[in-house]
């Protein structure tokens, strides 16, 4: 297995669905960071067979809302002095603000400037989000 240096201090985004590492990298705008960032693709996983991992050699604020929406199975390990000091498990966020856009041409979001695109998790559960304005379901 390819070895990537273990982090002394930073964040590991683990259990990313294999193949989605770069998507997460782009969504979180990690290219804008100055620190060292490693994207590991197709790492072996006892749970999923294969997974992607992102290691960030700094303490940065991550948008857990976006991460939870993209893949709630992702885990976040916060590393300090070479040890995991916090493990965060994600959940599907109840509300998404400006993460996804409403595509309904009849919705007020299609014409109103400066309006936030707000979606709420619907009662149907897994990954069904509805625009708070027109109630249309988000179709990825």
């Amino acid at each position: 297995m390819l070895n990537i240096d273990s982090l002394e201090r930073g964040i590991v985004i683990d259990h990313i669905k294999a193949g989605c590492g770069m998507k997460i990298y782009n969504l979180l705008k990690l290219d804008e960071l100055d620190c060292c960032v490693a994207v590991i693709k197709n790492a072996r996983s006892s749970k999923y067979g294969k997974k992607d991992i992102i290691k960030i050699e700094d303490m940065v604020d991550l948008d857990l809302e976006i991460l939870g929406f993209v893949d709630p199975h992702i885990t976040i390990d916060v590393i300090d002095e070479g040890k995991i000091v916090e493990k965060k498990h994600l959940v599907l966020p109840q509300k998404l603000v400006n993460v996804i856009k409403c595509k309904n041409p009849r919705c007020i979001t299609s014409i109103e400037e400066e309006i936030d695109h707000v979606f709420k998790l619907s009662g149907q559960g897994d990954h069904h989000y509805r625009c708070v304005y027109c109630e249309q379901e988000y179709q990825g």
Partner: peptide, 10 residues
Amino acid sequence: RHPKEGAPLR
């Protein structure tokens, strides 16, 4: 009254 859905909420 507005032709766009969600305008009164806005």
